[in-house]
C-alpha cells in the first residue's frame, strides 16, 4: 500500500504540491489525472523519493521511501522523461538492473523482450521513444516490483503495445498484489485499467473516486415506452436520481444514479417496450457525476 499524506512542495513562489494526499491499495491501480502543470509529475517524484517534499509523509507498506533501499528495491518507476546509459544495450541494462534489484526475474526479462520484439544487443541510444518506453517497461517489470509508478506510461506507444503493457500490469496487480500508481493527462487513457481515479489540480487532489463504486452507482439506460408519460414517471421514483435524459424519437437515454438491481426492478415494473443497460465510459461517469461543471474536470474531458 502506498500512503501519501499532506505533501507540500514549493518551487520558489510556485506551490507545486499543496496538501496532496492519496492512498493506493495493494493490488489496485490508481490513476492520477490532471492537466499539464497540475503537479502530477512532482507528486510522483516526491512519492518515489526523487525529490524531498517540504512537508508531508510518503510511505510504502509503512516505510518511508526517501533514501530507503528496502523500499526502492521493491519499487519500479518509469518516468515520462526516460534515460538510459547511452552506450548500453538492453542486455547491458538488464545486467545492471539484475545487480540492483534482488527479485530480478531473468526468464521474465527474456520472455518480455521476445514478446515486445526489442533488439537486446542494439545500443539504446539508437532506440526510438516508443522503443525506450518498452525497454523501460521490460526492465521495470522484470524487477518484479511491489509498487509500480508510471508517469504518462503509454505516450508514444502503439495500441497493440499499449494493450500488452496493461496486460502485464493488470496481471501483476492481480497475481502479486502489486500496487500501481499511474499518471495521465487524459481520462480516456485510464478507461478500463484503474480501480481508483484521483484528479489533481494546482497540486492537490480535487476529486477521488473508486471506479467500481462509481460504476455500480451510475448507469446508462435505454428505454422506450408505449406512453411517453411513463418515462417521465421514472424521475419520481424513490432512491433513484435521473442525472440526464435524452430523447431520440421513441427511444430515450437516461443516466441514472441508483442501485443497479433496484433500478432494474423498478423499470421492469413499469413494463417498458424497450429496456437495456448500456456501458458507461469513465468520461461519461465523470461528466454526469460532476455535471461537467468544474473547470479542472472539463479540461480533462474536452
Amino acid at each position: 500500500m502506498i500512503k501519501v499524506e499532506n505533501l507540500h512542495k514549493n518551487f520558489d513562489e510556485l506551490a507545486a504540491l499543496n496538501d496532496f494526499s492519496i492512498n493506493v491499495k495493494s493490488g489496485s491501480v490508481y490513476g492520477l489525472i490532471g492537466i499539464n502543470g497540475s503537479g502530477k509529475t512532482t507528486a510522483l517524484k516526491a512519492i518515489t523519493g526523487i525529490i524531498r517534499p517540504d512537508r508531508g509523509d510518503v510511505s510504502f507498506d509503512g516505510e518511508a521511501v526517501y533514501e530507503n533501499l528496502r523500499v526502492k528495491r521493491r519499487m519500479g518507476f518509469i518516468p515520462d522523461d526516460l534515460h538510459f546509459f547511452g552506450s548500453y544495450t538492453l542486455k547491458d541494462s538488464a545486467e545492471f538492473y539484475r545487480r540492483l534489484f534482488p527479485r530480478w526475474d531473468n526468464s521474465r526479462y527474456r520472455e518480455m523482450s521476445e514478446i515486445f520484439g526489442l533488439p537486446v544487443r542494439k545500443r539504446m541510444n539508437r532506440f526510438s521513444k516508443g522503443m525506450l518506453k518498452q525497454a523501460a517497461f521490460i526492465l521495470t517489470m522484470a524487477a518484479k516490483p511491489d509498487f509500480l509508478i508510471l508517469d504518462e506510461p503509454i505516450d508514444g506507444l502503439d495500441p497493440i503495445v499499449r494493450k500488452l503493457v496493461w496486460k502485464y500490469i493488470m496481471a501483476d496487480a492481480a497475481e502479486r498484489n502489486m500496487s500501481v500508481l499511474v499518471s495521465s493527462h487524459n481520462l480516456r487513457e485510464m478507461e478500463g485499467v484503474c480501480d481508483t481515479v484521483g484528479i489533481v489540480d494546482k497540486g492537490r487532489i480535487v476529486l477521488e473516486r473508486d471506479l467500481d463504486e462509481l460504476r455500480s452507482d451510475i448507469h446508462k439506460v435505454q428505454t422506450a415506452w408505449s406512453k411517453p408519460a411513463d418515462g417521465d414517471a421514472i424521475a419520481g421514483l424513490p432512491n433513484l436520481k435521473v442525472l440526464r435524459r435524452e430523447k431520440s424519437g421513441a427511444v430515450e437515454h437516461l443516466i441514472i444514479r441508483a442501485n443497479r438491481e433496484l433500478l432494474e426492478v423498478k423499470i421492469n415494473e413499469m413494463r417498458p417496450l424497450l429496456f437495456d443497460m448500456l456501458p458507461l465510459s469513465l468520461e461519461e461517469i465523470f461528466i454526469y457525476e460532476l455535471g461537467g461543471e468544474r473547470d479542472e474536470i472539463k479540461q480533462l474531458l474536452f
Binding site: 517534499p53 509523509d57 509503512g62 516505510e63 518511508a64 533514501e67 530507503n68 533501499l69
Partner: peptide, 20 residues
C-alpha cells in the same frame, strides 16, 4: 508549523537507508 518528519512518522526510523 513546518514538519520535518518525512522519514519518521511511518517507519519510526529516521534516516534508515535499509542497508547493512
Amino acid at each position: 508549523m513546518k514538519s520535518n518528519n518525512y522519514y519518521s512518522e511511518h517507519s519510526g526510523q529516521v534516516r534508515k537507508t535499509g542497508e547493512g
